[in-house]
Design a protein around this nucleic acid. Structure first.
Lengths: 135, 135
DNA sequence: ATAATTGCAAATGCTTTGCTTGTGA
DNA sequence: TCACAAGCAAAGCATTTGCAATTAT
């Protein structure tokens, strides 16, 4: 059983065949697929799963804290499994590749900025867009 | 003449009546209106200006570097006049208020992170979402 | 004069939803 | 059993676009 299925069990999310397939595909994905791409991968396992179900499941999983949704540039939402440790993303503007990174110092500064403005930070979005330095 | 009109002149962007109105409204706006809201404000000056024109103009101005587009949570793009000095945003998750802030330290760290990953930073998006601390 | 711009409505692309049938616990 | 989920197609929403009429330079 994959880790997403396990999380579903823990959270009392009913496990249907379709959800199991989607859970498995997302568990196996090391990238950040959009719904179309996810549906494509899911269809290779069971071509009867509709895209509506993928949309519904992905939203369900997100609300359960199992998946994380990202609205990178491009207009299509992309998903990844909720990581144990928070990370941000650098997007290669040429290839579309996404690199994950962690920077505690930035996180700390963001908290300080929010506090200084009289706010408690509840969420944040940080995306870097860059082009590869050739050497 | 407002500052956006001036920028249009400098960049050789043809100035129509509609664009002048949109330029004026955006110059007067101190917030981050979405296209609907902008169209509403523009309509108070000239109710014959269509929303299609607002969409086209806002995109044109953005491509000319005159306006900045933001995709905050909520699904609708929001615009502000391109500032002289770059700033980021903190969004009040309860009221929707947007607070602008500048943090050179964070900017510097972002550049370093990108460089460390082998990238040249060309753009970045940083949004903090928070709730007001009551005292 | 004429290439660019507008308004309108239709089209688009992503995402959601109503409804009927199917199914997990 | 039966509340919930899936599949399908239709609807929704923000945004874009084709086209004929209008306008800035």
């Amino acid at each position: 059983m994959n880790s997403i299925e396990e999380k579903c069990k823990n959270k009392g999310v009913r496990l249907t065949d379709q959800r199991k397939v989607i859970a498995m595909v997302m568990s196996d994905s090391k990238d950040h697929p959009d719904v179309d791409e996810l549906h494509k991968r899911v269809s290779e396992v069971d071509k009867k799963i509709s895209i509506a179900t993928v949309y519904r499941t992905v939203k369900l999983f997100e609300e359960a804290g199992i998946l994380e949704k990202h609205d990178f540039k491009g207009g299509k939402a992309r998903y990844e499994q909720s990581p144990d440790e928070h990370h941000d993303h650098l997007i290669d503007i040429n290839s579309g590749d996404i690199i994950e990174f962690v920077d505690k110092d930035i996180e700390k500064l963001q908290n300080e900025v929010a506090k200084k403005l009289g706010y408690k930070l509840v969420d944040h979005k940080e995306e870097l867009y860059g082009s590869k330095i050739k050497k």
